[in-house]
């Protein structure tokens, strides 16, 4: 056991996986000599060479397309997109190629690729270094969307993603890269994909969240003595519906917390899934605490991000329903 932050955990995991499997190749902008703008791949090019830790030209669609081609030829690429905000020129590669190749080739060709990219706000990155685009990916059959909420999960989820066999969009909450430290087990362990974690237990309300919002919801519940479950989805697509329904049947009250804009966000999907399965258990309307339907602001980002106050407002409103 060593105490580390998420950057160190991911770096160590990539190192461990690469040492074991020479088919793992990293590629992206500034990831080699520079070790990545967040230093997640620091030291890996020195250790594994420029052939395996590739500094690519500045072209996101090229990085993703190239990674897909590597995967089709027996490698296990782990491309990095420097900021999730820059991924949109590569969406055709992600949606029309990576996500569909298994299906469209009748399983002849598959794309075992883990696309890592930092997402979310909280570092004063303004419009183009702060977006939470999980819903764009979650709308695409064939993708698996994963986001860790702490260093230990980051390791276990990343190792599971590498061996998964289908394309994984691995969203790294950049706000948590260095803001929290915890004990991370040494050696190989897996956190299963498609399984949520209940990170706090209680009886009166269920908070459903993921990634960067998990520590915030946890501290909010602790500080305010909220008697509720907190579900960390870990995998956003496909989400762990059983864990959600199980909790809702117990509490009857639901708040969904995410940074991404509200409209057509994951909260809408989770909410619909709950009403389809557990309507009779609900005591109150399902509430969402999310980013607003505006672009992400620079100077005033505190107003954009969900916070303790907004979460408690929703929880208190839920508790009015008896």
């Amino acid at each position: 056991m060593t105490e580390m932050n998420m950057v160190q955990a991911i770096n160590g995991t990539l190192d461990m996986a690469m040492a074991k499997d020479s088919s793992i190749i990293l590629l992206g902008e500034d990831i080699g000599v520079d070790g990545g703008v967040f230093r997640v791949t620091d030291g890996l090019q020195k250790k594994y060479g420029a052939e395996r830790v590739i500094d690519t030209p500045l072209v996101e669609l090229g990085i993703v397309g190239m990674a897909i081609g590597m995967a089709l030829s027996g490698l296990k690429p782990i491309p990095e997109i420097q900021f999730q905000d820059f991924i949109f020129t590569a969406m055709d590669q992600i949606i029309n190629q990576a996500a569909k190749i298994r299906y469209r080739s009748g399983g002849e060709y598959t794309v075992p690729m883990v696309l890592r990219t930092p997402y979310g706000g909280g570092i004063r990155g303004g419009i183009y270094h702060s977006q939470s685009g999980e819903a764009y990916f979650a709308h695409t059959a064939g993708l698996t969307v994963v986001t860790p909420s702490n260093p230990s999960d980051a390791k276990g989820l990343l190792l599971s993603s590498i061996d998964y066999g289908d394309p994984v969009i691995f969203l790294e909450p950049k706000k948590l890269y260095r803001s929290m430290k915890m004990e991370v087990k040494e050696g190989d362990y897996r956190v299963p994909l498609r399984k949520a974690a209940v990170v706090r237990e209680g009886d009166e309300v269920t908070a459903i969240t993921y990634g960067s919002m998990v520590p915030l919801v946890k501290s909010t519940f602790e500080k305010n003595n909220v008697n509720g479950d907190i579900i960390d989805l870990r995998t956003i697509l496909p989400m762990d519906i059983e864990a959600i329904v199980h909790s809702v049947e117990k509490t009857g009250r639901v708040v969904i917390v995410h940074e991404a804009p509200r409209t057509a966000g994951m909260g809408a999907e989770i909410s619909a899934a709950i009403t389809e399965r557990a309507l009779e258990s609900l005591l109150a309307p399902i509430l969402r605490v999310t980013g607003p339907d505006s672009p992400f602001p620079y100077r005033l980002e505190e107003y954009y991000m969900p916070n303790e106050n907004r979460i408690m407002k929703a929880v208190n409103k839920l508790m009015e329903y008896r």
Partner: peptide, 27 residues
């Protein structure tokens, strides 16, 4: 699509297979 003869599955959006071919060549 014919993997046996190394003929990669074809998509509709034109040229999208070109960056993918680059990755295959890298491999």
């Amino acid at each position: 699509s014919d993997k046996k003869r190394n003929f990669m599955s074809v998509q509709s959006p034109v040229a999208a297979h070109l960056p993918v071919a680059v990755g295959a060549a890298y491999a």
